[in-house]
């Protein structure tokens, strides 16, 4: 997984995506990519992994960070 390491912790890219979502709740993939400075394809792939790990949640066509996600970047 690109954004979560084998220990279940976010990678550097994962942290950038989570921080972008913490600072801009309910963001589109494009907005997250712009805020995090991460390529669009990596954000899409990372959000897929982090949704599965319940660090983010999809709301309509946007994403939000979960409490579990926030704890991992504190």
């Amino acid at each position: 997984m690109a954004c979560i390491n084998p220990e279940g912790k976010p990678t550097e890219t994962g942290k950038k995506v989570l921080k972008a979502l913490r600072d801009n709740r309910l963001s589109t993939v494009e907005k997250i990519a712009e805020t995090a400075g991460v390529a669009l394809f990596r954000v899409r792939s990372g959000l897929r992994d982090m949704t599965e790990a319940e660090l983010v949640v999809m709301v309509g066509d946007k994403y939000d960070i979960t409490e579990k996600g926030i704890k991992l970047i504190e």
């Binding site: 690109a2 954004c3 669009l40 394809f41 990596r42 899409r44 792939s45 990372g46």
Partner: peptide, 13 residues
């Protein structure tokens, strides 16, 4: 090498 990727991940680029 950057995790699992789908063609759809590149949409827009």
């Amino acid at each position: 090498t950057h995790g699992n990727l789908k063609l759809d991940d590149f949409k827009g680029n």
